[in-house]
């Protein structure tokens, strides 16, 4: 899923400092799962913002709404009746949400309330980790089922580098050296020969490097399915 972190209250307050009436819009998708943009978080943000603004002697009127998803125009359209009641909107969704809102409600100021961080999952309660870089041509089967593009600090295709120590990456002690894990897994499986030889250059055209991407499912476009 897409993982995100909440922006600091300070940053959010600075964004809306000139606004008196805003709407905070949450999302029931990934950001609800990673506890940053669901109903609960939207409610909490609204109340702490109100308290903070009251303290400043500058009350703010805040309403809330949580959409099924913000990455789907069908749901984004659900606020079309009410959006003009507000000076601005704070979107608590991944970076996709505030853009879908900006594209549909062209005159409205839409603020991002989250920092979108990565594609990953929870490894323990309250901890999420990156797993995928969305490079557009998955080859994890060549690396013991683990992705060095997303998880090696240097995206090495032929690792591990000379900084790998005790299973830990050279960048800091909290980061696993994924290449160590790949090699250990291959050794255990008796498949070290898979790591003999040179892996060739990656074609980055399918990644962001090739420009903004688009997926077209012809059969859906044509309405066959």
């Amino acid at each position: 899923m897409i993982v995100a972190d909440q922006k600091s209250l300070k940053e959010i307050l600075a964004m809306v400092k000139d606004n008196k009436k805003i709407l905070i819009v949450g999302c029931k998708g990934c950001v609800t799962v990673c506890n940053v943009g669901g109903l609960k978080e939207v409610e909490i943000l609204a109340s702490i913002m109100k308290i903070a603004r009251k303290k400043q002697g500058n009350d703010i009127d805040i309403d809330i709404k949580v959409l099924e998803r913000q990455c789907d125009n069908e749901y984004v359209a659900e606020i079309s009746d009410i959006i003009n009641d507000y000076e601005a909107v704070i979107s608590l969704a991944c970076g996709v949400g505030p853009q879908f809102l900006s594209e549909m409600y062209k005159e409205k100021i839409i603020y991002p309330g989250l920092n979108t961080t990565f594609f990953g999952g929870a490894t323990e309660h309250g901890v999420w980790e990156e797993r995928c870089a969305g490079c557009g041509s998955c080859a994890i089967h060549d690396f013991a089922g683990l992705c060095p593009i997303a998880r090696c600090a240097k995206s090495l295709m032929n690792g591990p580098c000379g900084g790998s120590s005790d299973g830990v990456c050279e960048i800091n002690k909290d980061t696993v050296c994924i290449w160590d894990t790949i090699v250990q897994k291959k050794i255990k499986a008796g498949q070290l020969e898979d790591l003999i030889g040179v892996k060739g250059l990656k074609n980055w055209r399918t990644a962001r490097d090739g420009g903004p991407r688009r997926s077209i499912r012809e059969e859906l476009v044509q309405g066959n399915i």
Binding site: K154, L156, C161, I171, V198, G200, L201, K202
Partner: peptide, 27 residues
């Protein structure tokens, strides 16, 4: 490949790593 930029004086930099040292040798 080079030390990761977090060690240096421009840790904010984008790290390129289009290719790695092994691929550079082959190139």
């Amino acid at each position: 490949s080079g030390d990761h930029q977090t060690f240096g004086n421009n840790p904010q930099a984008k790290n390129v790593h289009d290719i790695d040292s092994m691929q550079l040798i082959a190139l």
